[in-house]
């Protein structure tokens, strides 16, 4: 039997993974760059990829609809991710207390996480229904709302309502991550702080906060990257309406490439999205690398 050197063995074991990454990610990414300089058309991408230089990019950056969709996405990301972090941390602090039913609640956190995204979107669309939706019924029956609202029909509200659906599904992730970090804090540390006369607030800042800040910031970036890709929930709930107020970048690229069939310019939009994502991903990698060094 042949004996390989350590390095050869290492590379051999990595080959299948690298093949898949190159085939399914590397090659397409390069091809997207190529497409973005062509006029490739969906009806026959292989024969229409005429070189057009920077035309697609110039058009993309001058397209106010695209810039609006970036703005919408940024808005959606900041609303949903910040709410997910705040609610998630609060829920984790709650679940770190001893009380009856804690295990049950923690199990319940799994429900939104495991619920398929499309079902989540559909469920909230039904709840938000302007005429027979549960939200309207609930709010008017308890007297919080005077008359029925068109939640997804109002451009000032629609993106918020979509964000709420996203928050509901994803805050449990932040909660579980934070909870795990909280459970690593030793009870002695808290008691010592209490004996030193620290109040709840001080205890939070001196003991709890340092323990959770790292995992929570990782969760923050992770959620930002995910939220930035948002597509399915928009596709099911609003399809970008009303008046494009919920149209996100992913939806814009989808429309350009698959409804208007312009793969070339669709690719240029996609690459602008990649640039933004790359920044976020780099932040993420930097964070976990830093953490890897300190722990």
């Amino acid at each position: 039997m042949v004996r390989f050197t350590k390095a050869t063995t290492a590379w051999l074991l990595l080959t299948p993974m690298m093949t898949i990454i190159i085939g399914v990610v590397g090659y397409p990414l390069i091809k997207t760059v190529y497409y973005s300089f062509t006029a490739a058309h969906l009806a026959s991408p292989a024969t229409t990829d005429r070189w057009v230089g920077f035309k697609n990019y110039i058009k993309a950056l001058g397209n106010s609809k695209f810039l609006d969709s970036i703005e919408n996405t940024a808005y959606f990301v900041s609303v949903s991710v910040s709410a997910e972090i705040i609610i998630g941390v609060l829920v984790a602090l709650l679940l770190n207390q001893a009380f009856k039913g804690r295990t049950l609640l923690r199990a319940l956190l799994i429900l939104p996480l495991a619920l398929p995204t499309v079902v989540n979107a559909m469920m909230w669309r039904l709840i938000y229904g302007p005429d027979f939706g549960a939200l309207n019924a609930l709010l008017t029956q308890v007297g919080l709302l005077a008359e029925y609202q068109s939640w997804l029909g109002d451009p000032d509200l629609a993106l918020w309502m979509v964000a709420i659906a996203d928050i509901w599904k994803n805050f449990p992730l932040v909660a579980l991550i934070t909870l795990a970090a909280l459970q690593t804090i030793s009870k002695d540390l808290i008691e010592a702080a209490t004996l030193d006369g620290a109040n709840t607030w001080q205890r939070f800042w001196t003991v709890v906060f340092p323990a959770i800040v790292a995992p929570v910031s990782v969760a923050l970036v992770l959620r930002t990257i995910e939220a930035f890709k948002v597509f399915d929930i928009i596709y099911v709930m609003t399809r970008g309406g009303p008046a494009n107020s919920t149209k996100t970048v992913s939806f814009h690229v989808y429309q350009e490439a698959f409804a208007y069939m312009r793969i070339g310019s669709g690719a240029s939009y996609a690459l602008i999205v990649v640039l933004i994502s790359a920044l976020l991903i780099a932040t993420y990698l930097w964070l976990i690398k830093k953490q890897g060094n300190t722990t």
Partner: peptide, 19 residues
């Protein structure tokens, strides 16, 4: 690898579709 699975699908979908 980590960067790979975080890549937004729109970056890859067009060539994957035509392939």
């Amino acid at each position: 690898a980590i960067a790979t699975f975080m890549m937004p699908p729109v970056a890859l979908v067009l060539p994957l579709y035509s392939a």
